[in-house]
Design a protein around this nucleic acid. Sequence first.
RNA 1: GCCACCUUAGCUCAGUUGGUUAGAGCGCCGCUUUCGUAAAGCGGAGGCCCCGAGUUCGACUCUCGGAGGUGGCUCCA
Length: 553
Amino acid sequence: MGIGPTIENGFYYDFDLKESLTPEDLPKLEKRIRELIRQDLKMTGSKATTASARKLFKDQPYKLDLIKDFVKEKKQLTVYKLGDMFSDLCKGGHVKNTKEINPDAFKLTHLAGAYWKGDEGNAQLQRVYGVAFSSKTDMEKYLWQQEEARKRDHRKLGQELDLFTFSELVGPGLPLFTPKGTVLRDLLDDFVWSLRKKYGYQRVDIPHITKKDLYETSGHWSKFKSELFRINTREGHEFALKPMNCPHHIQIFARRKWSFRDLPQRYASTTKIYRDEQAGELSGLVRVRSITQDDAHVFCDMARTESELKNVWEIVHEFYGAFNLPLKLRLSLRDPKQPDKYLGDGKLWKDAEAILSVVADKKIGKGKYECALGEAAFYGPKIDFMAIDSLGREWQVATIQLDLNMPKRFGLTFTNDKGSQSQIFMIHAAIMGSIERFLAILIEHYAGAFPLWLSPVQVQVIAVSEKFQSYAEKIAKDLQAADIRAELAEANETLGKRIREGETQKVPYILIVGEKEKQADTVAVRKRGKGDIGTTTISSLIKSLQEEITKRK
RNA sequence: GCCACCUUAGCUCAGUUGGUUAGAGCGCCGCUUUCGUAAAGCGGAGGCCCCGAGUUCGACUCUCGGAGGUGGCUCCA
């Protein structure tokens, strides 16, 4: 047996068994656990010496391994006993007696493989996951939430709402976007652009393949060689599909000498990158092999770094605010104990980390955010933003990274006001990060019911019967002429059926027109989630829709 | 990549304990219906039962290999 800690809402335990467990085994195990709970077994703990623990667990190699680690960390060993049937090396503190456990408020949820101590080089054990609560009601609430999350799974909604698809011929992790999905992607990208424009970003365009020399200089080749899609040309040269954009933006910057008067230069591209992710890591749109990044890099001098970082901060907050996604912040720093994981010397890192901390302190206050050692990118520290969605789940979204290493490796400098050369500071500033991943988050956040400005179809026009189809067509055309994404429903189904269709497709507004509307030159409006909200003229409807779209609500 | 599970029509899923013609609902197509706020009626088309090999008189079903997916682990510039 391996290890079995508590986790949020439950626990897991790893086993090394000859036979594999199957999902059918879980109810049997649950039954046995319930029997044990009902026996009112005492859970007693005691301190153990290294020698006595080694003796007690002499047949359990995983426990002996743990004992070795704990001794090295100078931890006090404790052994907990369940009745007099089972002893385990355990931190304890869960319960004193099994009668404290509610036999109706736990459930073994799923099975998984897990490496011993999380190391790919170690043996793989079978992990049993479970959840436990103090009352049955709490467990049912939790299971209901899980069910809710399943219902809004972006992979399911992506198909139902016809947003994207995958093809076995194209390959895993390579999503294909339908017309509706592409409308969404473009709207999100346009929104980011509208925010960037205010801060002087300029669009640049770069190729998708490149000589490997670029990545040898950047340091990516040695670090990520196995995750690159590589291409050999007929002339024997080796190219790679770009796995990131910084080196290309750097080469645009490096085209000429810059004066301090020209800085900052701010380059941005919405462009795809390609990473050969391991098959088992792929998941819907969250983890893919072709990733669209809304990537930007700012090249500036040290003096202007802080204000440029703050500008990115503003863009990030304005962007996520529009979706009602509150942000939490994490400062991701270098782990000084593992210097070989990072580029460059410690001094550069210290400087970069100091500047980022100042920005974070000024924006949200000293000590009011989490610092994560070892979470930095290999070329620089970063500010990571976590968005909290409507189900309370946390997603890592935007990052602001300060990079002194890449400019150094590529020898980026500018002529300062004294006429000598100074080093360039570089800021990596992706707002969505990956459009695919952000779209997945949005689909689940809204459960597919996008706000009006994002809805691929904003208005569905339905004629009560075929007699009014031409009037309905005129309404749809008027809306389209006002840049509203309106669709006309075919007339050959019943009214109820067509309304249902619009509702299941989560169209924000459905307009219904018949004799009365045609006579009065009006439309009957049905709003998603509200039902029939009355009749209005087409011109006042267009006005109010445009207002709603502009407000992005 | 590793462990476990899954793959039947465009979608959701039945089914065959190895047996000859493979089923439903939705969707699609046709006809009828022209309708006032969440599913009209009738008819039709649609399947290499994921792919390859093996076992067998016979494989959608069993075995092995592969692909794709799901839950985890590992990784994530």
